[in-house]
Amino acid sequence: MTYSEIKITFNQDMPINGIARINYSIGTSTAQILETWKTSRSKSKEVTVGTPTGIVGERSAINFLQAFNLDYNSSNIFEVVRISNIVIIKSINPNLKFNDGQAFIESGHSTASISTFFSGPCSKTYIITIDGMPDEDVTYDLMFLPDVGRTELGKAVKLNSAGQKQIWIDVGSGPSAQATGTDSFELTLINTSATPKKVSGNIGFSNCEV
């Protein structure tokens, strides 16, 4: 019998230094499965890039499965199945749970940059530009302080045919709903090993209407 499971679809052939990471928990303890693609596997937690097959992502799935079994499944605590470019991992431990059923594939492609569209005494508008591959799937975490209610975790977006996506972010007395103080944010791309993958912005203000 199996319990929690996760399905990973490799919709691209992973490049050198690409990363796959899967978070899971056992009771109150948390852990992470982490594999990094290299020209050839020379130590644990490395996956050989290899030569692509006729199916996009299939070679990455094959080699990931081999590395995963060596690094994390020597005691057969998981049931693992591969279908073409898809890997399905199932836990046989009822206390082991994959967090949110998510696997983060870091392609090494996308980067983030920031510019200011408007700056005033009480508010500021930033433009975040994500650059990557055409139609690339990108995931980011967006953290706000002090207004944590605006936080977005694991937000998935698709880049356009030119490999770009713009995100507009307002900070200031309006979003933070205070007349005096600071408002800040930090955006982190979580499916890339490229740099820069983290940008941030802030504003300090006083005597502003809310």
Rank of each mutant, 00 (worst) to 15 (best):
S74Y: 04
T195I: 09
F78K: 03
S107E: 10
S110L: 03
G120Y: 04
L96V: 10
Y72Q: 04
P134E: 00
Y140A: 04
N202R: 09
S206P: 06
F117W: 13
A67E: 05
K45Y: 12
S75R: 08
K45L: 11
E46W: 01
G154P: 00
G132Y: 02
I127N: 09
N17V: 13
Q102V: 15
V171R: 00
K7Q: 15
D100K: 12
A20S: 13
T125Y: 10
S173F: 00
V81W: 12
P146S: 10
Q66W: 13
G204C: 09
D131G: 07
E106I: 11
E58V: 12
Q178G: 01
T195L: 09
T48E: 07
V171W: 01
G50W: 08
E58I: 12
K198M: 04
I86P: 06
I88N: 08
E58P: 08
Y3M: 09
T53Y: 12
T195C: 08
I203H: 02
S115L: 04
R21E: 15
K38R: 11
F205V: 07
I86S: 02
K38M: 11
A112Q: 06
Q12P: 05
G108Q: 07
N73S: 03
M1P: 11
N73H: 02
S206W: 08
G50Q: 02
T2V: 15
N85K: 08
M143L: 15
L189C: 01
F144V: 13
E58M: 12
A194Y: 02
I203Y: 03
S74R: 02
I203N: 03
N63S: 01
I55L: 15
L189V: 06
V81R: 14
V56F: 09
Q32S: 06
A112E: 05
T129M: 09
C208I: 07
K198H: 00
N85T: 07
S60T: 11
T111I: 10
A67D: 06
L189R: 01
H109L: 12
P196A: 07
E186L: 03
A20V: 15
I114Q: 09
N11R: 10
I26M: 11
S91L: 04
L145R: 14
N76Y: 06
A177G: 02
N11C: 10
S110Q: 07
D131L: 09
E46Q: 11
A61C: 12
Y126V: 03
T30K: 11
L153Y: 14
Q178E: 09
E5M: 10
T151P: 07
T28K: 13
G101D: 05
T180E: 01
S184F: 02
T48Y: 03
D141S: 06
E58A: 12
I33T: 06
K198D: 00
S206L: 11
N73C: 06
N191P: 02
S60K: 07
I19K: 15
N191L: 03
Y24A: 13
I26V: 15
N99W: 10
N63Q: 09
A103I: 10
N76D: 07
I19C: 14
R82E: 03
A20H: 07
I105Q: 05
P52S: 06
S113L: 10
K7Y: 10
K38I: 07
T30R: 10
V87C: 01
T116L: 06
V80L: 02
N191E: 00
I130K: 03
